[in-house]
Design a protein around this nucleic acid. Structure first.
Lengths: 140, 140
DNA sequence: AACAATAATAGTAACAATTACTATATTAAA
DNA sequence: TTTAATATAGTAATTGTTACTATTATTGTT
């Protein structure tokens, strides 16, 4: 593993991640960090976000729409994707660690983790009259 | 909803999806269907795969690496991603429908489904000596 | 404080996956 | 068999992301 060297840009990226629960994309992080570092490059943002994810200081969330999102909260937790506005929200529900073993029994190999993405309509979009889409089972 | 009109290309795509459990990418589908339709365009493959997913005759699986994958089996089920060889495999385990309600209690809105992707090492890669990577918790 | 070794950066180009566009062809139905 | 609608092939454009490179910043050492 390569030695990490401090960088102010990386620190700003971490701070921004810590300050939001919006699960921003790399581009959103870029737009915000650019307020402090007007010359920061998008590549630097990507490199650092991936680095943070690699060393376990951030989580990369892959969703069916748009680019990957990043989360500064590294404690295992699930997410909800509002399929109307495409916001990604935290779900304050314990991670079902036991399903890894359950799944392992059915799998010819080793399972060490899982993630779950819930699909729903957020309260905001419900207010606006959004309905659950068809097909209502999008389980991958 | 637009009226669907039969197309031989779409039929071939469906047949190929039905014939495999490999969860192919659009490109892989393209390469195979091209054996029967040498002039089929990649755009046609994408359009039809997305169409099939929209009408519930296929499932689109988004993974953290590489392009989306497609599955002709539409009954809800989970998948395992081997983080070594990146194969996506079916998991023969009942979908935990009850967690949707569980999650709904914790979410200010409506939840209608979820998907889960398990991370592991397949038997093949275990044989080759592959180990579980660090961090061992990749739960998004 | 100056130096050397290493890692990080900005800026740009390249890449991969996917969608959009358009003129032609196929399908379905009158 | 004409007509209207949908689908196609081929291509260009877009999006999200990574790779490259010369320069700069960091860190440890004299």
């Amino acid at each position: 593993m390569a030695n990490l060297k401090y960088s102010r840009q990386r620190e700003a990226i971490k701070e921004f991640l810590a300050s939001t629960t919006e699960h921003p994309t790399a581009d959103t992080v870029y737009l915000h960090v650019r307020e402090e570092f007007p010359h920061i490059s998008l590549g630097t943002v990507y490199r650092n976000l991936n680095l943070l994810a690699d060393i376990g200081e951030a989580i990369k969330i892959t969703t069916p729409h748009g680019g990957d999102r990043f989360d500064g909260v590294t404690a295992p937790h699930y997410h909800v994707l509002c399929t109307e506005c495409r916001r990604v929200m935290d779900l304050d529900m314990p991670v079902l660690q036991s399903v890894n073993e359950l799944a392992g029994e059915k799998f010819n190999g080793r399972i060490y983790s899982h993630n779950a993405l819930f699909y729903g309509i957020c309260s905001n979009c419900l207010k606006k009259g959004s309905k659950i889409p068809y097909p209502d089972t999008l389980t991958q």
